[in-house]
């Protein structure tokens, strides 16, 4: 019927904590008493059979749980979003990318930098170039999201999330439809972000008999969340 997960016992306070989260997804599915903690630099994979995105949206504060709480740096996540100090502390890689369709790949990556910082355009252009190199998308910089395949859109989304050096990045459906090449680029970028900036990752995963190569390197702790209906 439920839940549950844990991370390594560590001294620093949890970056993200889900406490007793209940969520009624639909007539056939609910989550009950989900508890989870993530600390800086950790990479946690949430293995969920169904409604993976929904649970991740709750963890990201984009959907309200029926009961329980989600804390970001110890504060309720809703108030964290109201506080602009929160800005740029989290990123989200949506299943479809979530890139702004009327903006080029490069401008998508530059968007949070332009909005949240007063960096000169030349510096932003440099950082965007580095981010594009990181995910192997230099050729696609001037293209619009609809002009590139879904896998590359997700890579661009990851680059945009990492451009602001966030504390925590949510990745929906980590391995969804990725080709070997895209998957390797994804793993490499996440690995480097963790070792360089101590960025934490919370990814949702489908239950798979044969996990994709490199997933054990990428996901340190697997939290299996079961869901059902009484």
């Amino acid at each position: 019927m439920t839940e549950s997960a844990s991370t390594q016992p560590a001294a620093p306070p949890a970056l993200l904590a889900l406490r007793g989260v209940d969520l009624d997804v639909n007539e056939a599915l609910y989550f009950h008493d989900v508890n989870l903690e993530i600390r800086s630099g950790e990479s946690v994979g949430l293995v969920v059979p169904r409604a993976r995105t929904t649970l991740l949206l709750v963890a990201a504060g984009l959907r309200r749980p029926d009961s329980g709480s989600v804390l970001l740096n110890g504060a309720p996540i809703e108030s964290a979003y109201r506080d602009l100090a929160h800005e740029a502390s989290t990123g989200f890689v949506f299943e479809g990318g979530g890139l702004l369709e009327n903006t080029t790949v490069a401008d998508n990556i530059a968007l949070p930098l332009r909005y949240h910082t007063s960096l000169p355009e030349a510096v932003i252009a440099d950082r965007v170039r580095s981010a594009l190199v990181e995910v192997g998308l230099t050729e696609e910089a001037a293209r619009f999201p609809y002009q590139i395949p879904r896998g590359q859109q997700r890579l661009a989304s990851l680059a945009r999330a990492l451009a602001i050096e966030p504390a925590l990045v949510y990745v929906d459906d980590l391995h969804h439809g990725a080709t070997v090449e895209i998957w390797q680029l994804f793993v490499g970028a996440m690995d480097r972000a963790r070792s360089r900036g101590n960025t934490a990752f919370l990814s949702s995963l489908a239950i798979a008999d044969s996990p994709p190569p490199g997933v054990d390197r990428l996901v340190h702790v697997t939290a299996e969340v079961r869901a059902s209906r009484v």
């Binding site: 949206l57 990201a60 984009l62 979003y81 602009l84 929160h86 800005e87 740029a88 502390s89 989290t90 990123g91 989200f92 949506f94 299943e95 479809g96 990318g97 979530g98 890139l99 702004l100 369709e101 968007l111 949070p112 909005y115 949240h116 989304s157 945009r160 999330a161 602001i164 949510y170």
Partner: peptide, 11 residues
């Protein structure tokens, strides 16, 4: 397309 949710996540 999750663009609005992405904006929120970017603060």
């Amino acid at each position: 397309n999750d663009e609005l949710a992405a904006l929120r996540m970017m603060g």
